[in-house]
Computed example of a mutant assay.
Amino acid sequence: MSVETHPETGPELGSEVESEVESDVQDIDLVDDELLDELLDEHSVSLFEGDEGGLEYAQRRALVTLLKQRFISARTHPRDWRVLVEHERLLRSRLNDLFLDLQVDRAREVAWKRQATSETGSRFPTMLYDAAWSREETLVLVHLRDRLRAGVASGDARAFVDREDVVRYVSSFRPSHATDVAGDEKRARNAIAGIVKAGLLIGTGSEERFEISEAVEPLIPLELLQDLLAALVAANDTEVPSGPDDTADLFDDEADADATATGDRAEEQ
């Protein structure tokens, strides 16, 4: 998972979207990882001197990936996904020990963590921090979810979007009194870069075209996007665009009930 905050550049949206690991851990070197796979007994739970852990190497690797990444999926982390599916209860238990809750969407083959909340509503100690999406990032996510659902409805296995298409959508929400066109466009492009870094936009052979991650829908639930978009429209005194980018369908689909249920609206610190 990305460990960067998402600074607020617009009105207070009241949105905690993702929890991030505070420690700045470097990515595991894939070559070393593959070498370890070959050298270590996959069923051994003693991996170093004094090791009193109870997980096998593959299970530990999946746990670390869950802690470091915003999400894992069958496509982005196939080995870890297979381990998670096979040992979901065990990995869920380890995350629970850290006051974290494991969320799994088996239909879309995506898993992610969120901060657990006690039955009384009080906050547990946390190793995560909350970061709200910026105004522009929120609009990008609204557009991506819309495009993803449109692609699924059309029977497409994968959904794609062009950078300029996203920039135009974000600009359609520019308040009538806004005059810093260049600054607004720069913020829109920075928002796209942030979503790419978060793993919700996947690069293709072209720098101007991206594939939309299947994780967008379960990670960004419908209810949250409805509230965020309403707040943006009210704050900017604008109307939801009509025509090709009409977001009406985004908020009018019985199937969205499942998406809302599987997503997480975590609370602000």
Rank of each mutant, 00 (worst) to 15 (best):
A111S: 06
F124Y: 15
A58R: 15
V21G: 00
A266G: 14
G205I: 08
R79K: 11
E8W: 02
R158L: 13
L250F: 12
L232G: 02
L55H: 02
S19M: 08
L40N: 07
P241R: 08
L128K: 08
E214N: 04
R158K: 14
T65F: 01
R163Y: 12
E86W: 01
I220A: 11
V142P: 00
P7V: 05
Q103G: 13
H87Y: 14
Q103K: 14
S19G: 13
G203I: 00
Q69C: 05
S46Y: 02
V167H: 11
R108H: 03
Q26Y: 04
T260C: 02
L40Q: 04
L201R: 14
E223I: 11
V152N: 04
V83E: 01
A235G: 03
V233Q: 12
F124D: 10
R265N: 11
S23I: 01
E119K: 13
M127E: 00
A178G: 00
L30I: 07
A255E: 07
V152H: 10
V21Q: 11
E34C: 01
E18S: 01
F71D: 00
S171A: 10
S93H: 04
A116E: 15
E214R: 09
E56A: 12
T9L: 11
A132I: 05
V167C: 09
H77C: 04
R147D: 05
P78R: 07
H87D: 15
R94L: 01
A261M: 14
R145S: 12
D32S: 13
R60F: 00
D245S: 08
L148E: 03
A150R: 15
N190H: 10
D252K: 10
R61C: 09
Q103L: 05
Y57P: 01
D237T: 15
G155E: 07
T120I: 02
R75V: 13
R61Y: 05
T204L: 07
A191I: 03
N236Y: 14
A257Y: 09
S93M: 11
V104E: 05
E268A: 08
F173G: 14
A132W: 06
P175Y: 07
V31F: 12
R114L: 08
L219N: 00
T238V: 15
A234C: 07
D237V: 15
V25Y: 06
T5E: 14
Q59I: 05
L219A: 04
L229I: 12
L84C: 07
I212H: 02
V142D: 04
D245L: 08
D51L: 04
P125C: 13
M127Y: 01
V142Q: 09
A116V: 08
F160H: 13
A230G: 08
R106L: 10
D184L: 07
L63N: 03
E207P: 02
D97E: 15
Q59L: 03
V31I: 06
V181I: 14
L13V: 09
E207H: 05
D165L: 10
D37Y: 09
S73V: 10
G53T: 06
L67F: 06
D130C: 03
T65V: 11
L39W: 13
K68I: 04
E214P: 01
L98Q: 10
S73W: 03
R147K: 10
A107P: 00
L232W: 00
L229V: 12
S19A: 12
D24P: 03
E217L: 13
D51N: 15
A159E: 03
P241G: 09
E185S: 12
A234V: 08
D24A: 06
